[in-house]
């Protein structure tokens, strides 16, 4: 008996619609995040992640509706991130049906918010999303960037990961902003440096272009979960293919109940 490595498809949601959605004929409305989440749920996603990239207040409001409609039909854990600024935002998203909430910019600005959220809703619901860029190679160093990777902060990513854990984060979602969108694979050094340091689970994110990248995230990066977006969205690979690839490399994955 052992804990299985999680495979997590991530959906970018803007104004209540999926950005870069799954192109499958059997979806009635390919732009509806709920339809897409249900599709991944049926494929046996171990968790589903929504990342809200709405800029406007109105767009933000639609997220709650998307989350609650998803929770109505998907009986699998749901993480929601993007634009979370306060403990009230945590509560509202959890109440809508999210199981975990990811916080990024607001936590970088005010790390005490991690502690406040953990005390209020429990550490297990608090995911700290770390978006980092490599700023040196020998030895490697990474800096935290916010606002979707646009704004440098001068904060060391590894030090911030340690602070997030100390303040009560239940999980870290680590994204390499250098790799994100490149399909070149995760920044393994970044993932490994953080997983070796912390005692909480780490989700690897950013850069997956093929199944080997998912495998490397676990075998080399020692990630507890691997997240990917486009390889699943564009139908390059199914979740079952991802599970098979991990399994062939000696990584334990979930046995689906049929």
């Amino acid at each position: 008996m052992t804990l299985k490595t999680r495979i997590i498809p991530c959906l970018d949601v803007k104004d209540g619609r999926v950005v870069k959605g799954v192109q499958f004929e059997n979806l009635r409305d390919a732009g509806d995040p709920v339809e897409q989440a249900k599709f991944y749920d049926e494929q046996g996603a171990d968790e589903i992640c929504f990342l809200d990239i709405s800029a406007s207040h109105e767009g933000r409001g639609t997220l709650y509706d998307v989350v609650s409609r998803t929770a109505d039909v998907c009986f699998t854990p749901l993480t929601v991130g993007g634009g979370v600024r306060s403990v009230e935002d945590f509560r509202a998203l959890l109440l809508a049906g999210a199981d975990k909430v990811a916080i990024n910019t607001a936590a970088v600005k005010n790390p005490d918010l991690i502690r406040e959220a953990a005390l209020s809703v429990g550490s297990q619901c608090v995911v700290v999303a770390i978006d980092a860029r490599r700023i040196a190679n020998n030895p490697p160093k990474w800096e935290i960037f916010t606002h979707g990777g646009r704004n440098p902060t001068g904060i060391d990513a590894i030090e911030f990961a340690a602070l997030a854990e100390k303040n009560g984060a239940g999980e870290l979602l680590v994204t390499s902003m250098d790799k994100d969108g490149t399909k070149d694979g995760y920044d393994i050094d970044l993932i490994r440096t953080i997983t070796d340091m912390v005692d909480i689970p780490v989700v690897a994110s950013g850069g997956v272009g093929d199944l080997d990248h998912l495998v490397e995230g676990v075998t080399k990066g020692k990630a507890n979960a691997v997240l990917a977006a486009s390889i699943f969205h564009f139908g390059t690979h199914t979740l079952q293919e991802a599970r098979d690839a991990l399994k062939q490399n000696g990584i334990e994955v979930r046995n689906l109940e049929v």
Binding site: L3, T5, R6, D46, S123, Q124, D199, P201, V202, K222
Partner: peptide, 15 residues
Amino acid sequence: NHDLKIPQMGWNEVK
């Protein structure tokens, strides 16, 4: 085992 993180988060077997 340091590779087994706390919280235990994810799918595990129940007997």
